[in-house]
């Protein structure tokens, strides 16, 4: 059986000629069925480009990305993605946002079935009380929960997560990590987590691959995490295997960082920071309901 995702000598660049910037260079990667893979890397190293080629939102400039042995030609709901910035549609309620996905993926179901399905997943992420609220009325953590429910409700074969918890506070982050793991372990789909937090990667994944800093980033050596599931954050901190793997990965990344500093003469890669402005929208919807 072919692996769920396979990258074969994939390179990706933007622009042509003198303005050509190579983001990823010669990537070879295999993701097995049922595996939880984490890719860690510095911001701006091309992690989002990598995951977007798995969704099909981007096409490789060279080489090919295979999904179950077939080249990926475009996005499909079977490869669900949780975006870093939630990407909820602000004019829809929580219910409608999830329903948009469910209606698209299960057109053959009856209205009642689809509605029940939406409610089930909204409940699963603990937002039943907010089902008729709009994204602007929710906190960052709640919005990301909606985004998770939207993806999970379509029952994807492969769950892609592009720094899903990057914009959240530590506490919410920890809770959502557990929730994602719980849902993932329930049906053991394949999953890819993009993150810049090594601890998060170790806690959640079976395998960690660092992405060297761009431009022209390549993949580093893989690190297997052989910790039993379910993992416990507190116990894990004292586990010798955890300590060793963590040190190894951090050392590797630190070395990369040092090397990057020595190499870099003028070209700085700015961090990819998106402002989140919840204020103005929630203001209006509050007023409109008043």
């Amino acid at each position: 059986m072919p692996p769920i995702i396979e990258f074969k000598n994939v390179s990706k660049w933007y622009g042509e000629g003198d303005s050509r910037t190579e983001v990823l260079s010669n990537i070879n990667l295999t993701i097995e069925e049922g595996e939880f893979l984490a890719i860690v890397g510095f911001t701006g190293s091309g992690k989002t480009t990598l995951v977007n080629m798995m969704t099909g939102l981007l096409q490789p400039s060279e080489g090919e990305v295979l999904y179950r042995g077939q080249p990926i030609t475009g996005p499909a709901p079977e490869r669900g993605i949780i975006f870093q910035n939630y990407s909820l549609l602000p004019w829809y309620t929580v219910f409608q946002n999830v329903a948009l996905a469910v209606d698209e993926v299960y057109p053959q179901w009856s209205r009642e079935e689809r509605e029940a399905h939406v409610r089930k997943f909204v409940e699963m992420v603990g937002l039943s009380h907010a089902v008729d609220k709009r994204p602007s009325e929710l906190s960052g953590g709640m919005r990301q929960r909606v985004s998770i429910a939207r993806v999970l409700a379509t029952d994807p074969d492969l769950l892609l997560m592009d720094e899903p918890l990057g914009a959240l506070d530590a506490l919410t982050r920890g809770n959502l990590q557990d929730e994602i793991l719980q849902i993932w372990s329930a049906n053991r789909r394949s999953a890819v987590l993009i993150t810049n937090d090594v601890d998060e990667g170790i806690y959640m994944a079976d395998r960690i691959i660092p992405l060297d800093p761009g431009p022209a980033a390549g993949l580093g050596p893989e690190f297997r995490i052989e910790l039993d599931r379910p993992r416990d954050k507190t116990d894990m901190n004292h586990d010798p295997h955890f300590k060793r793997v963590r040190t190894e990965i951090l050392n590797y990344l630190v070395q990369l960082g040092e090397a990057g500093k020595q190499q870099s003469d003028a070209s700085l890669t700015l961090p990819d920071i998106q402002p989140i402005k919840p204020g103005s929208r929630s203001f209006v919807s509050k007023w409109r309901r008043a």
Partner: peptide
Amino acid sequence: KDYLNVARVLNLGIGKKIFKV
């Protein structure tokens, strides 16, 4: 672009894409 990406990932048809997104 994020909204368009949502529409693309869900494979929304052109009509739904226009009227819902």
